[in-house]
Amino acid sequence: MRLTRRGWAVAAAIPLAYGIGEWAGYPFFRALAGIALGAVLAAVLTTVRRPDVTVRRELEPDHVERGTPALARLLVSNNGDRRQPGFTARERVERGESVTVAVRPLSPGEEAPYHYELPTSARGKLTVGPLVLERSDPFGLLRRPLPAGDTATLWVRPKARAARAWSGGHPRHHHEGHTTDDALRGSADLRDVRPYVLGDEVRQLHWKATARTGQLMVRDYVDPEQPRFTLMLDTRPKVLSDKEFEEAVEVAASLVTASTMAGHRCRMLTSAGRDLPTSGGAHAARQLLDVLCEVQQAPGVLALPKSGSEGGCLVVVTGRLRAPDLRELAALRPRFASMVLLGVGTHGLGMQGLGVHGVDGVPGARAISAADAGEAVRRWNAIA
């Protein structure tokens, strides 16, 4: 049990009022001290009983876009055979935020649902809970916090705007030679049989392999003409401010979502070294958005790993480019059929931060400069 500010004031007033009454001989002050002491004792008796309830929390949904409402559903059940007085449930959320729910008195065996909205104004992976039950007295002198239940995770993803999938690039004809280790999937050419992952089509299940291995197996096909899309997100702190970086993350989310949902083989990298290749589809989109949910700024370089797929379109989402950056990008240009440099922020693709737009030194690369994610996606849709 903890005294509130009002409780501390009343507790401090008890000896003070009694002392004044004894020193001055005023019965009123002694009576006032007795009343205050009685209020404190009554508060103790009111809050000493622990709520005999079961609390369950559900997030609806647990993956949302930034700014989209996310609801939590709280089910409170009275486990005892006595009427349960009302109390307060306080939900803790990361970043110092909290949500308060007033739970009404419950009859024996009664269950009551409560809904409340969780904060989704900032991108990130948020830990919701643990829930704290608080019982207080009618005078507000004492409160007793009691942890209840476990924690849940709320994924606040960046907003994915309506973007077009890139239609450029050269097809890869595997029939002109052997297929590579990163061959594409989707055609009628069987390449391998592999374990089932969420998002695979059920019609591709290989029942004989499933019976032999004891786990679901699917046919892995090769599609020589499946488009390739590679996106690199510049996470260097000196390139983008905090606000500009959030806009850049939204641009990346919009482009990779459009690409994967169009069935393109998509690979996303960051300048800090994160590398996530996917084969396209709704499951791949969810994977990439979860990565973008947690990505933070960190030092690095604009360079691709030596291993991994190449070809298709490379999009670099960045900010203020400097001469060494352009040299790195010029070295990457021959490895892709097309390259787009997308600068987000006040200076866009500014050289040395002076706002001089352009990509001189990177032959054949297209440039897009935009102040925010909305403008960047609109200009992307005009050339995609």
Rank of each mutant, 00 (worst) to 15 (best):
Val64Met: 07
Gly300Phe: 07
Leu326His: 04
Val40Lys: 02
Val251His: 05
Ala39Lys: 02
Met1Asn: 05
Pro15Val: 13
Ala112Cys: 13
Ser254Gly: 01
Val222Met: 07
His283Tyr: 13
Gln352Trp: 07
Ala284Met: 03
Gln287Met: 11
Val317Pro: 05
Ala376Thr: 06
Pro108Ser: 05
Pro195Leu: 04
Gln84Thr: 09
Val256Glu: 00
Pro27Thr: 13
Gly348Asp: 00
Ala282Arg: 12
Thr88Phe: 04
Ser136Asp: 09
Ala285Asn: 07
Glu375Met: 04
Val315Trp: 06
Gly358Ala: 07
Glu65Arg: 08
Gly199Trp: 08
Val76Gln: 02
Asp150Cys: 00
Ala165Ile: 02
Lys306Phe: 11
Leu131Val: 14
Trp155Phe: 10
Pro195Cys: 03
Gln297Arg: 15
Leu59Gly: 03
Ser98Val: 14
Glu65Ser: 12
Tyr116Thr: 14
Pro363Ser: 06
Glu310Tyr: 15
Arg95Ile: 09
Ser77Ala: 10
Cys313Trp: 12
Ala252Asn: 03
Leu133Lys: 10
Trp155Met: 03
Ala152Asn: 00
His175Trp: 15
Ala162Ser: 03
Tyr26Val: 09
His115Tyr: 15
Ile368His: 00
Pro113Asn: 13
Arg104Glu: 14
Asp223Tyr: 06
Arg50Cys: 00
Thr88Gly: 03
Ala160Ile: 03
Val291Cys: 02
Thr68Phe: 11
Ser369Pro: 00
Pro171Ile: 12
Thr260Tyr: 06
Met268Arg: 12
Thr4Asn: 04
Leu332Trp: 10
Leu292Thr: 05
Trp23Ser: 08
Val359Thr: 06
Arg95Glu: 08
Arg30Phe: 05
Ala331Thr: 04
Arg82Gly: 00
Ser307Lys: 14
Thr47Val: 15
Asp290Ile: 05
Lys306Met: 11
Ser338Lys: 11
Val103Asn: 02
Asp189Ser: 08
Gly319Ala: 06
Asp192Phe: 14
Arg83Lys: 14
Glu65Gly: 05
Leu233Phe: 07
Arg2His: 03
Ala9Met: 13
Ala12Cys: 08
Arg30Tyr: 08
Asp372Ile: 12
Gly109Thr: 11
Leu329Ser: 00
Thr213Ser: 12
Ala152Phe: 07
Trp155Glu: 04
Val76Gly: 04
Tyr221Asn: 13
Leu240Asn: 01
Val362Lys: 01
Thr278Pro: 03
Phe139Thr: 11
Thr88Trp: 11
Trp207Gln: 10
Leu302Met: 12
Asp189Gln: 13
Tyr221Asp: 00
Gly86Leu: 08
Val249His: 03
Arg161Phe: 06
Ser187Glu: 14
His63Ser: 02
Met217Tyr: 14
Arg123Asp: 01
Leu269Ala: 04
Glu244Asn: 01
Ala39Ile: 01
Gly273Asp: 09
Thr4Met: 11
Ser98His: 15
Gly374Ile: 09
Val99Met: 09
Asp150Trp: 14
Ser254His: 05
Glu94Leu: 09
Val295Gly: 01
Thr318Leu: 12
Arg135Thr: 09
Arg144Gln: 02
Val222Phe: 02
Glu134His: 12
Thr180Glu: 03
Ala72Asn: 02
Val101Trp: 12
Leu154Lys: 02
Val193Phe: 09
His178Asp: 13
Val315Glu: 04
